[in-house]
Simulated scan of single mutants.
Amino acid sequence: MSRYRGPRLRIVRRLGELPGLSRKQPKHAYPPGQHGQERKKRSEFAVRLEEKQKLRFNYGLNERQLLRYVRRARRVKGSTGLVLLQLLEMRLDNIVFRLGLAPTIPSARQLVNHGHITVNGKVVSIPSYGCRPGEAIGVKDQEKSRKLVEHNLEFPGLANTPSHLEFDKSKLSGKINGLVEREWVALQVNELLVIEYYSRQA
């Protein structure tokens, strides 16, 4: 199953606010489709599936990638749900988004893919690169790269930079000081239900 490239607002209407996927607000508060306004009793499986889909679409993952992150989170001591969120938040494309260098995670992924972002002074073009505390995130020293990022900084996706990151707007550089705390995860999701959804597969 490949990454979703269809209408983003359709997904936002179905799953609720996804700050990493789109900044646009849907005109209708109910899900899309012919039966969108009908109230249905959802099964436990449907509730868990929906929470899993929130993670998938917000962070721009396919099913195989998300399952791999769940398996990695299970091998780490501590709360599996929190570790899973920390792994996803430490992806390079998400760090670029949270620093305000791009308005959404898909646009952050494009910035990284096109070689505009550096980690510790070296260009990294892999959006899934797992960043670590202490690493410096910057913009490639080219006029085109700087102009792109400066334009994005005028309309950041999220207003506040999380506590584990710091950003110097004059130098267009940021630093990762630690792992994200749960209250700074922008996505409204119940990560425990995601772990339960994958309990038979992971």
Rank of each mutant, 00 (worst) to 15 (best):
S145T: 08
I176S: 07
T161E: 04
R132I: 09
Q25M: 14
L66T: 00
R146T: 10
R5V: 14
C131F: 04
L67A: 09
L179S: 11
E183D: 14
R48I: 02
S79I: 07
V119W: 12
Q34C: 02
E17W: 00
P106V: 13
N177V: 00
L18T: 10
A108Y: 02
L15E: 03
T80P: 00
M90D: 08
Q201N: 08
L153H: 08
E166Y: 04
H164S: 03
Q201K: 14
M1C: 10
R42S: 12
V70A: 04
N113F: 15
N152Q: 10
W184D: 12
S43Q: 05
L82K: 15
K140M: 08
K147I: 14
M1V: 12
I11P: 03
G60L: 12
D168M: 11
K122F: 09
I126M: 15
E150A: 11
R98Y: 05
N113A: 13
Q34N: 03
G81D: 09
A202F: 00
Q142E: 15
L192S: 07
R10S: 15
Q201S: 11
L187C: 11
L67Q: 06
Y129D: 05
Q25K: 15
E196C: 04
G130R: 12
R8D: 06
V12E: 08
L15K: 03
